[in-house]
Design a protein around this nucleic acid. Sequence first.
RNA 1: GGCGCUAUCGUCUAGCCCGAUCUAGGACGUCACCCUCUCACGGUGAAGACACGGGUUUAAAUCCCGUUAGCGCCA
Length: 433
Amino acid sequence: MSNSSAIRVRFAPSPTGYLHIGGVRTALFNYLYARQQGGKFLLRIEDTDRVRSTPEFEQEILESLKWLGLEWDEKIEHQSARIDRYREVAKELVDKGLAYEQGDSGKVALTFRIPKTKVTFTDLVHGDVTYDSNEFDDLVIMKSDGFPTFHLAVVVDDHDMGITHIVRGDDHLPNTPRHILLYQALGWRPPKYAHLPLIMGADGTPLSKRHGAVAVSAYRSEGYLPEGLLNYLALLGWNPGTNQEILKMPELIKQFGFRRVVKSNAQFDPEKLRWLNGQHIRMLAGEDYEKRITDFWKTKGPLPDKDRWRKLITLYRPRIETFGKLMDQASYCFNEPEYKDAAMLQEIKSNQTSIGLLRQLFEILRDMGDFEDVHLLDQKTRQVVETAGLKPKDIIHPLRFVLTGGTASPGIFDLMSLLGKDACLKRLSAFIT
RNA sequence: GGCGCUAUCGUCUAGCCCGAUCUAGGACGUCACCCUCUCACGGUGAAGACACGGGUUUAAAUCCCGUUAGCGCCA
């Protein structure tokens, strides 16, 4: 009597576009449920739309799933390879008198005659849902071009693939009673259903390009972590029932359940995604962080020598929310500073006290060894202001401006060490002379 | 237009099933303060919500009905 058969779920994207945020969320929930239950997570490519489906999109979807770590089991099914099967099932329906031909002169569509009844099913997130099929029109299952409609194909595929739970977006909720009627007509047992709330844009309308990045690949190239994206998406429409928000994959798998899936649509909030991604960046083990941010950046151009690179990424770890932000914030490490704030430039240059301090500092730094010892830099710099009876920030702020061209940076002494003696002296002398 | 789903801070949500523990909890964002050489990180705190209207009940965010709104599917 035990639940002998393992659960089987599937993600069924159409290769008519990139894998987008909504698709990932659907894939994720399927994946989490499969892994938690020790079942199978299958992939099916719904490529019956011959004109809009492309191998490039399919490839992109697979790569995105791999990058996210949503690895599928068994071999990928393609609907395009199963056309004969759909025709066979459609014919069976016609033979049984449950579907009929419509159209003329060779161009016939096949239509399923909807039985007039009340259809009730138990959705894992919505509970009991009832539709009255008297409201339904008969359902076209084979188009006149000889290709199946979505409705026929999903039902046949899910049955043939042994799918036990269909986890998909709420937009399919109204299709479900029609599908169940098809299962019944075919003498098949319908699977269980779980309909997920939809992800909307910030204005409450369906998420689309005009809300910003929707393709997973865009997040990848901006330097988001799969962990961050997945964690955020998991929280969009689900929660663990505790106040914990930062969850890694093993925890998500362990704690996931349809019982805690929210019923209402959610707005995608890039701000919170960024925050969460920053949390995951800070949580990575040191070596892992180094490897991943390095892999990210080395594809984009030459990196500084290892020591300098290490210093840089260490100093910026608490300051970035995505890997992509690193070079934006630390551009002064690679380029001469741009003194864009003319007012501040003028203010510092005309302040004799500041210039005097910077000159003294220059002399001292010039006579030092390399800048490896951050504490020594700290000491020497503070001595300059102390003997002048001033505060550390009287030199630190101008110095920061000189070295970076701005007012925000990591700690000034770490920064000096990062830049190195040559660069510091060069920027200083250019400024004070 | 028909049918369906949904409705708690600006946003994501807890609480709703099993009414009293809710002067409604957490997080993002915002603001303030602390840390501090700046910016971050981290810490503390503040502002901020039960869509509306009826009912049931000693008592409703929680149950019921309606309205409204959003979304979805179909037309």
